[in-house]
């Protein structure tokens, strides 16, 4: 049954919604190798491991990511405008204004402050990204480790089931579910997205557990009479941790992008709840009704917020994977 998934060289991203996949080990950063010219067997032994560094860019990303988390947690205590305050309740508010001193990033059609809405929106993105992935890992990861360790019928049946779900185009089903499961709210979205992420998490974790469990030291531990519990927690988990961490980060980024997509389609958390996807959805008015006065900044600013958050998450995942990957440093 192990041969059901398509033979990917790339890490699958949760239910196949890009962003991808970091492909087969990417040596380019470390090595002086050249095209069409293979270094001989022996120089691998000579070129000793370069000391691994996370680099300044990684720490910039950590800081930006931490800032987002901070804002998401404490946004209600920050001295910023109420994100739902609109011109209907306060006629003094400017409508569709560009960036001003009072409204740093301008206001939208209803006079709501874009800066405040972006700060509040980071909460939705992070809650969905991390909430969805935590549930996905709690279920998919546990099942994956257990199935790969136990093997047998349980593994076969569960794998068929998971790979079946994995073959479904998730977006179509998400939209369809949103139609019948009204009204949508944040919790429902998190549940839907985490369910959609379970098979992908299962597949990745099961795969790396299988690889780890077939190694000699696991057999050695078994022969020495170590308990299953001990083998799983002391021997297998440390080995799959690098893969798990980087896949978790990729998954978070993927869910954030996907939620934004659903919001742009208008089937995610309903407005007026501020989310970046909703803001972009409202911003698309600048295309559809040019006379509405909505400027492209309503798309641009949440777009930049998306970009910076996703870039920091992707970078953290990518660099951590390189950092933990023992095989990569060899060359």
């Amino acid at each position: 049954m192990t041969d059901y998934p398509p033979p990917n060289h790339i890490q699958p991203s949760p239910f196949a919604q890009s962003p991808p996949a970091f492909p087969r080990e990417d040596h380019s950063i470390h090595e002086p190798a050249m095209a069409l010219e293979t270094p001989g067997e022996i120089d691998n032994e000579f070129i000793k491991e370069k000391r691994k560094k996370l680099g300044w860019f990684f720490w910039c990303c950590v800081v930006w990511f931490g800032l987002n988390v901070f804002v998401a947690i404490f946004v209600n205590f920050l001295p910023i405008q109420d994100p739902t305050l609109e011109v209907a309740t306060d006629p003094n508010l400017p409508v569709n204004s560009g960036p001003t001193a009072a409204h740093w990033l301008g206001t939208d059609e209803s006079g709501r402050d874009i800066f405040s809405r972006i700060l509040h929106g980071s909460r939705v993105s992070l809650e969905i990204g991390f909430g969805g992935m935590l549930i996905g890992f709690a279920i998919g990861g546990t099942l994956g480790v257990y199935a790969a360790y136990r093997r047998g019928r349980f593994d076969s049946l569960l794998s068929i089931f998971m790979f079946t779900i994995l073959a479904f185009p998730a977006i179509v089903f998400l939209i369809a579910f949103s139609a019948v499961w009204k009204p949508m709210d944040l919790n429902k979205i998190i549940i839907l997205l985490s369910v959609a992420s379970i098979p992908a998490v299962y597949r990745v974790i099961r795969g790396s557990t299988l690889a780890a469990a077939s190694r000699e030291f696991i057999t050695a531990a078994k022969v020495q009479g170590a308990s299953d519990f001990r083998i799983i927690f002391k021997e297998i988990l440390p080995n799959i941790l690098p893969t798990a961490i980087s896949f978790f980060m990729i998954g978070v980024a993927t869910l954030i992008i996907l939620e934004g997509g659903l919001a742009v389609l208008g089937v995610s958390v309903p407005p007026p709840e501020p989310s970046w996807g909703n803001m972009i959805n409202e911003g698309t008015t600048f295309i559809n009704s040019p006379n509405s006065g909505v400027g492209p900044w309503l798309v641009l600013f949440p777009g930049i917020a998306f970009f910076l958050l996703l870039l920091s998450i992707n970078t953290i995942g990518d660099k951590l994977r390189d950092f933990f990957d023992v095989t990569e440093g060899k060359l």
């Binding site: 190798a33 270094p39 120089d43």
Partner: peptide, 13 residues
């Protein structure tokens, strides 16, 4: 043996 063959990469070697 690779040097004799001329197969060594030109860059880095």
């Amino acid at each position: 043996s690779r040097t004799l063959m001329g197969l060594q990469p030109k860059r880095g070697v």
